[in-house]
Every structure is written in C-alpha cells, then in structure tokens.
C-alpha cells in the first residue's frame, strides 16, 4: 500500500529527530515527579491508577503532549513543500491523499514512541518499588495518551495540508494549542456565569451543556477517559473515544481535500 510506504519513510525520518528524545526525557521526568508526590509511607503501596489520575499528571500530559505533537506536525506538508522534498515524494506514485494518510500514521507513531518509552521503562522500576500495577489499566493509559498525541498530530497535519504557507500552518497550530489547552476552560467560566444568570429559561441544562463542551475538547475527552480507568465508571466512554478518534481523522481528511485541489 502506498500510504504505508509513506508512513514508514516518515516514521524513519521523524524518529531520528532530537525532539523525540527530549520528549521522552520530559515524560520520564513528569512520571518521576508524580510518583514522588504520591509516594506512600514505608510498607504501603499505591495503585498505578492513582498515579495516573493524580491531579498533576493529566494536567502536565495534556499540556506537553499537544504542544509536542503540534510542533512536530505543523510542517509535515508545508515544510516539505517549502524545502522541495515534496517534489521528490510526489514524483513517486503516491496520491496526495496517501501522502496525508501516511504522514498521519508516521507522525502519530513517532509521537507515540516517546510516550511508550517514557511511561513503560520507569514503570518497571516503579513496579519493583511501592506501586502496585493495574497492568490493563496502565496499558490503556499509555494507549490513550498515544491517541491524544495522534489527535493533535491530526489537527496540525490537517492545517499543514490545507494551508500553502508554513507560517499560516504554524499560526494555526499555535492557535489550536491555546484554544484547546488554556482557553477552553477560560471561555467556559464566563459563559457558565452568563448561562446561570439566565436561570431556567434555557431549553438545555447548563451543567449538561458544559459536560459535553468539555468532552468535545480532545484534552477533556482524554481526562474523562483517564478518570474512567480509575473509577471503573463507564459514562460517556464511547462518546469520549469517538471525539478523540474524530480529532485524529477529520482534520487530516478535510486538509487532504484542500491539498488535493491545490497547485504545488
């Protein structure tokens, strides 16, 4: 398959970049910090689900990982276009859709690599120590984190495919970061106050509305899913998963539509 060849090539190229090792180190540092903070008294143990749901870990992950994924993906196509390697790539028999699909797979795998390495290797040490591992839950946590990375790869890649200039793609990715990471909550709060002041005149329950608004944000969906790992409550699991997968696939699909029509 054509996109698989592109994906393999893109992964090979991306894993040789320095950012990947930096991200691995940051993830190990975050995990160490969080483990230290929840470190139990001697003789006691702490569950791995508690570690991954401590306040700090999801917050740090949903800040660092989107940023890293956006940075490594915003120039996935515009960068190749401005350097000229896109000409080499498209001189081979790949459709533009296959290029976008291959890039999505390649970059997502490249972002998943430090996630897997960064969470798996220290986990072995923690398992020897006082952390009792819920293996299935921890694997699900790593998979979800990789999926969160893929969602932001998808957003940046969609922008990269749709815009003709690297600067626009960068601006779009920076915008996406601020929107989904710091701003979403900030906008929600005044909106919430406003809706509360409207009393019962609204057709929808504001609490419900905000719950869904939160799930629409990939980082919100991710945090919600992490919560379900620890508490075994399964409300909205499917919805949150659909949201995450939609962020992985919809932006690149729309980007590919534009990319297909564009003169290079």
């Amino acid at each position: 398959m054509s996109w698989e060849a592109v994906a393999r090539k893109d992964y090979r190229d991306a894993v040789r970049a320095r950012w990947l090792w930096a991200l691995t180190a940051i993830i190990v540092a975050i995990l160490s910090l969080v483990s230290y903070m929840v470190w139990p008294a001697p003789g006691e143990t702490v569950s791995s689900s508690r570690v991954i749901n401590s306040f700090l870990l999801p917050t740090l992950i949903t800040t660092i990982l989107p940023l890293a994924a956006l940075i490594v993906s915003y120039d996935a196509i515009t960068g190749e276009q401005s350097s000229g390697s896109l000409k080499l790539l498209l001189s081979l028999p790949h459709s533009r859709t296959a290029v976008v699909a291959g890039k999505l797979a390649g970059r997502s795998a490249a972002v998943a690599t430090p996630v897997v390495l960064g969470f798996l290797l220290p986990a072995i040490l923690l398992a020897i120590g006082p952390v009792s591992f819920n293996v299935l839950g921890y694997v699900a946590f790593i998979a979800l984190t990789a999926l969160l990375g893929a969602a932001f790869v998808g957003i940046a890649l969609g922008l990269s495919a749709a815009t003709a200039s690297e600067r626009l793609a960068l601006a779009g990715s920076v915008g996406a970061f601020f929107l989904f990471v710091p701003l979403w909550k900030a906008i929600q709060f005044p909106l919430q106050l406003y809706l509360m002041s409207q009393g019962n005149s609204l057709p929808v329950n504001p609490q419900e509305l905000f719950r869904y608004l939160d799930l629409l944000n990939p980082t919100g969906a991710y945090k919600h899913l992490l919560g379900t790992i620890a508490s075994a409550q399964s409300q909205d699991v499917l919805l949150a998963l659909v949201v995450l997968y939609a962020w992985v696939f919809v932006p690149p699909a729309l980007g590919a539509l534009v990319f297909q029509r564009r003169d290079l």
Binding site: D13, R16, G84, L88, S91
Partner: peptide, 12 residues
Amino acid sequence: VLPEGFSVYDRL
C-alpha cells in the same frame, strides 16, 4: 522523475 529544485530528506 528528476525534479528541479527538489531537496532530499536530510536525516535519511
């Protein structure tokens, strides 16, 4: 195809 103004993948 040998395109004009192409560039290679530096890291490969």
